[in-house]
Design a binder for these strands. Structure first.
Lengths: 330, 330
DNA sequence: CTGAAAGCGCTTACAG
DNA sequence: CTGAAAGCGCTTACAG
């Protein structure tokens, strides 16, 4: 590959001038600039990123740390990040941690060694407080989807509001006895969905049906299992609020397995609006998360921190959820 | 971050010796090695990857170029790649091209500038023949899922065999009139599935039902649309072979929309075995692709090429498909 | 086996 | 505005 000296020679200037013309921070005569640009163009010169990185410059790479790409919530967010990164000339390194703190630490060390410019984490949760120290070590960090305190720039959903609207809608449809099948309360996002559920119930003067409120459920198999147990115990809620679309899918299967219909006998509300949630039977009524947009915002914020520095107080950006009415709620 | 000189000082040796002790290619006295290792450990020294890269070493990063992470076939393959890469100390840069050749070229240039060690492409298709030149420019390349000739190391599915088995199974269930709703014949993988379909039909002495064979269909919306048209025209196949699970989902919706049942009235066979294909109603009978395994193999091969060089002829590795019987075929 | 030195390809303070 | 030089942190051929 052609280097800066060859370009300098071709343009009839010094390497310094080529560098200055290219970075654009230090003034260069118009004449020199034109000759350099012509040579760069002609020779298809691309500065060596290692040399630039070694000089303490940015390498224009960000690390994206998530639990698992196979979890259906992440692909859209990844696209948002990657598209935005690409527009700014950045590249994205993908890391899956499986919620495993060892893997997470490994990736952080490994990536810092490469002097990654910054990180986006979707792995924040209790036990991962050491992530909060990264900024003080000079590493720009943004949290996305999941949060952990307020000391880090964060982009999340209004989980409380989304759940609240979902329950309000179900109540408005005449549904009264609404079970909740929720994820782990370790994660604020599930805690907030629970709080939204409770608020809507309270406002309607309804009591929490405590024996039909289950936390710590994840994915369709778990969802199927817990719903089956509820049904086996004789519970017959009017509706179930599943705080993720996969759980909703398992729940629908369990309901049908005992010969009941969705939504005629039991309504099911999901949460996420995954790409295929419109395709299942019945098409899922659910709360949409703007995953792509979250990715875009998280990435923009990170790049801004990388390029302009963190000059203001960290901000927790909360995006609105949106109810998507389809056919799984009566 | 601590650099090699500080480690050298602490260990009472020269930087050269530290480097040699660490890389391990050039002999170092046992005594020196121990002192170096102790200092490295104590100071938590990590060599600067830029400096190493600048010296012409490997940067231990591979570029993964796919059409779109949101396409449900990729996440599992990505995990296979990333897990394997991680085991070897490699990091994965993810690039989405949306089948757009400009984006693809942009990424290739951008990544080569960073001296990526090699590429895995899932974007091979007619029009992308320039990818075939990469190896001659010294860039290790592996194709995964999609192939383009035989000049590149490739990991793909036995698409012909998978389709053949699917049709054989349907025939064995007494299904005769089997429609085909297929993807674009531009891609060898769909061409091969078509060939498998034809072979099974021929062997059974059945003719190709030409007016119920449609190519160029992609995704559930397309699948829904084309099935609806077929049905509207009065076609009533015994079964439909959809060459992807998303197409199968759209097809099932279309069948139900006109009041027919799956599989009692029309059976539907998918292809892919996506994570959620067991969860839909009816649970999808389909042909499983070992996506994770394909990722593992592709990544292993690439790392081998990076570290050992391409010393043998390129190989096209063909993995077996497996029929997964569930409930959408009678 | 070991150290001093050169050099990878940039950027930037220094001197003009 | 411009060039020569230093230096980022490594690795490795060179000399011993």
């Amino acid at each position: 590959m052609v280097n800066i000296k060859e370009v300098a020679k071709a343009a009839g200037v010094s390497a310094s001038t080529v560098s200055r013309a290219l970075t654009g921070k230090i003034p260069v005569s118009e004449d020199a600039r034109i000759r350099v640009m012509a040579a760069v163009e002609k020779m298809n010169y691309q500065p060596n990123a290692f040399a630039q990185g070694l000089k303490g410059g940015r390498i224009q790479t960000i690390g994206l740390v998530i639990p698992n790409v196979r979890s259906l919530v992440f692909p859209a967010a990844i696209r948002g990040i990657e598209d935005t990164a690409g527009q700014h000339g950045y590249t994205v390194v993908l890391c899956n941690t499986d919620e495993n703190i060892e893997k997470e630490r490994f990736y952080i060390e490994n990536l810092r060694r490469r002097l990654i410019d910054g990180f986006i984490f979707s792995t924040a949760r209790p036990g991962h407080e050491y992530l909060l120290d990264l900024p003080s070590e000079g590493v720009p960090v943004v949290f996305m989807i999941r949060q952990l305190g307020k000391a880090i720039n964060t982009v999340v959903l209004d989980n409380e509001g989304g759940a609240y609207e979902a329950i309000r809608y179900m109540l408005s449809r005449g549904l009264k006895n609404i079970a909740l099948i929720n994820g782990s309360l370790d994660l604020p996002l599930y805690r907030h969905r629970y709080e939204g559920y409770l608020r809507a119930l309270q406002e309607a003067g309804a009591a929490e049906p405590a024996d039909m409120v289950v936390h710590g459920i994840s994915g369709w198999d778990d969802g199927y299992q817990v719903m089956k147990e509820l049904l086996d115990k004789g519970h017959r809620p009017d509706a179930v609020f599943a705080t993720s679309d996969p759980k909703a899918m398992g729940i629908i299967r369990a309901i049908r397995d005992i010969g009941l219909r969705v939504p005629q006998d039991i309504s099911v509300m999901g949460f996420d609006n995954l790409d295929f949630s419109s395709q299942i039977d019945p098409p899922l009524t659910t709360v949409a998360q703007p995953f792509y947009e979250m990715g875009v915002r998280a990435c923009r914020r990170l790049i801004q921190m990388i390029e302009k520095g963190q000059n203001s107080r960290p901000k927790v950006e909360i995006l609105s959820a949106q109810l998507v009415v389809r056919k799984s709620v009566i």
